[in-house]
C-alpha cells in the first residue's frame, strides 16, 4: 500500500468523476463509490445538453475515460452503509462489506428529479397525457413523440419556487430545459403549438437568452407568464388546464394534447442518507450545507468531508463540473495543509 493519502468520492455522476480525476492528477489515491452499475449519474438519463445540444452520452464517455486514464479505483453497485470518524480520517463500510479508509471524503451524491406525484393538481400518474420533462427527454431520444400531438403545454417550476410543496428554491435548469425541449419538439412536430407557462424566465447562462429569443422568433413557441393552477382530463384524454395570463391579467382555460411538467431538483436519497451517516449538516431544503458561500462553499461542518455539485444546491452541468474542480483543490489544500 502506497503512502499516498486516500480520498473516497461518494457518487459517480459528473461532479464525482471530475473531482476524482482532478484529485488523482494532484497525486492522491482516489476511489469512487457509485450505487448504480455505471458512472454518469443523471446524465445517463438525458439526451442532449443545453445550450449547444451536445449529447449527454458523449459527455459521459469523456468523463468515464478521464476517470480511467487517471487511475481512479471505481466501486460500482455499492453504497456506504456505515461511516465512522477515526483519527486523521474516516472508515467507510460499503454495502458489499468492504471497508475503506479515507483521509478525506468528497460527497457528490447529486440530485433526484422532483417526484411530480406530489403536485397532484397537475394529474401526473393520473391522466394519460401528463409527463415529466425527464420522460419527454427520453421520448425525444427514442423518437417516440407521437405525431398526433398538436398542442403541448410545458409547466415551469414544478417542485421549485413552490411553498406549497415545501421547496422554496429555484432549480435553475428547468427554464432553459423547457426552451431546449420546446425547440426540439417543434423541430419534430413543425405544426404543433407549444406553450410554456413560466413565472419568470431565468436565462442566466451564456447563450441562454439567445436560445430563448430563437425559440420565440424562429420557432414561434408561446411563452405565457402565469402559473397553471390545476388540470383535469376530458373523455378523449386531453388535458384541460386552468392558468392565469398575468401579463394580460385574465384567467384562461386551455385544452392540450400533452402537458409536460418541468420537474425541479431535490436532494437525492443518497445525499440525504450520506449526510446522516457522516453527520453532515443539511439546509432546510435538504441539500448539504456548504461552508462560507464565497470562499469555502465546498467545505462542510465535518472537517475532512467536502461536497460538490448538486448535492449542495441545484446547478447546471457546467457549474457542476467547475464546482467539482474547485472542490478538488479545497481537498488538496486540506490534505497538504
Amino acid at each position: 500500500m502506497s503512502d499516498k493519502k486516500h480520498i473516497v468520492v461518494i457518487g459517480g455522476g459528473p461532479a464525482g468523476c471530475v473531482a476524482a480525476e482532478r484529485l488523482s492528477r494532484l497525486g492522491f489515491r482516489v476511489s469512487i463509490v457509485e450505487k448504480e452499475c455505471e458512472l454518469g449519474g443523471n446524465l445517463n438519463n438525458w439526451d442532449r445538453l443545453f445550450p449547444d445540444g451536445k449529447r449527454a452520452s458523449e459527455m459521459v464517455t469523456k468523463l468515464v475515460n478521464d476517470v480511467k486514464m487517471a487511475d481512479v479505483a471505481v466501486w460500482t453497485d455499492v453504497e456506504p452503509i456505515e461511516a465512522k470518524r477515526v483519527e486523521n480520517g474516516f472508515t467507510i463500510l460499503l454495502s458489499d462489506k468492504s471497508l475503506l479508509f479515507a483521509d478525506a471524503v468528497m460527497l457528490t451524491t447529486g440530485f433526484a428529479p422532483f417526484n411530480a406525484i406530489r403536485k397532484e393538481e397537475y394529474g401526473y400518474g393520473i391522466y394519460r397525457n401528463v409527463t415529466t420533462s425527464v420522460e419527454l427527454e427520453n421520448m425525444i431520444q427514442a423518437h417516440i413523440v407521437p405525431d398526433t400531438v398538436s398542442r403541448v403545454g410545458m409547466v415551469h417550476c414544478v417542485g421549485s419556487r413552490d411553498e406549497k410543496c415545501g421547496n422554496m428554491y429555484c432549480s435553475k435548469v428547468c427554464c432553459i430545459t423547457a426552451v431546449k425541449q420546446a425547440i426540439e419538439l417543434k423541430q419534430m412536430l413543425p405544426n404543433a403549438e407549444i406553450f410554456c407557462f413560466y413565472m419568470d424566465m431565468r436565462m442566466f447562462g451564456p447563450g441562454y437568452e439567445e436560445l430563448y429569443r430563437e425559440a420565440q422568433e424562429r420557432y414561434g413557441i408561446k411563452f405565457v407568464r402565469g402559473r397553471v393552477s390545476e388540470a383535469s382530463e376530458d373523455s378523449e384524454g386531453r388535458v384541460a388546464i386552468k392558468v392565469e395570463d398575468t401579463l394580460v391579467g385574465r384567467p384562461m382555460r386551455m385544452k392540450l394534447d400533452r402537458l409536460v411538467l418541468m420537474v425541479g431538483m431535490e436532494p437525492s436519497a443518497g445525499t440525504r442518507s450520506v449526510a446522516e451517516l457522516l453527520g453532515v449538516k443539511t439546509k432546510v431544503n435538504g441539500f448539504i450545507q456548504g461552508g462560507d458561500p464565497h470562499i469555502a462553499a465546498n467545505q462542510t461542518n465535518v472537517p475532512g468531508v467536502f461536497v460538490a455539485g448538486t448535492a449542495t444546491a441545484p446547478m447546471n452541468s457546467t457549474d457542476t463540473l467547475n464546482d467539482a474542480c474547485a472542490a478538488a483543490f479545497q481537498v488538496a489544500n486540506y490534505l497538504n495543509g
Binding site: 397532484e120 393538481e121 394529474g123 393520473i126 391522466y127 390545476e230 388540470a231 383535469s232 382530463e233
Partner: peptide, 9 residues
C-alpha cells in the same frame, strides 16, 4: 378537491 384529482376520480 380540484387540487387532488385522484380524489375526484
Amino acid at each position: 378537491g380540484h387540487l387532488t384529482p385522484r380524489v375526484i376520480a
